[in-house]
């Protein structure tokens, strides 16, 4: 139970970061954190039904559920890709407006249009 609560807290911290932080780099951190929280949740919960790695061997007990692991492999890569793109956009925004502050960027974009 404790680990689930911690994972939930991790998720909420990340979400609060996305919503509340003004620095867009910190927002991207928040996105990474909520992604990791869900990945952790899948892996931790999926490993409760067995006690060895899902690699079939001659004498092996019950393995953990391999499906969440395979799914999360995909989800992690997608998360990394989205983060990379977000950082690239942040870089361009910084070059254009000289700031990482979302409100400041909003203000300047508004003025331009």
């Amino acid at each position: 139970m404790l680990e689930r609560i911690l994972i939930l807290l991790l998720f909420l911290i990340g979400f609060a970061g996305i919503v509340g932080m003004r620095n867009i780099i910190k927002k991207i951190f928040g996105l990474t954190i909520i992604n990791s929280a869900v990945v952790l949740l899948f892996i931790v919960e999926g490993s409760r039904i067995g006690n060895s790695a899902p690699i079939i061997d001659a004498e092996i007990g019950l393995v953990v559920d391999p499906v969440p692991q395979a799914l999360m492999l995909t989800a992690i890569v997608i998360g990394v890709c989205v983060t990379a793109l977000a950082l690239a956009l942040a870089f361009r925004l910084y070059k254009a407006y000289g700031s990482f502050d979302i409100d400041e960027i909003h203000r300047q974009v508004h003025r331009e249009s």
Partner: peptide
């Protein structure tokens, strides 16, 4: 969702093992 204590389903693991 996060704190649910439903037992984890065994069907996929059993099939794969």
């Amino acid at each position: 969702v996060f704190l649910s204590s439903m037992p984890w389903p065994l069907s996929a693991r059993d099939y794969l093992q």
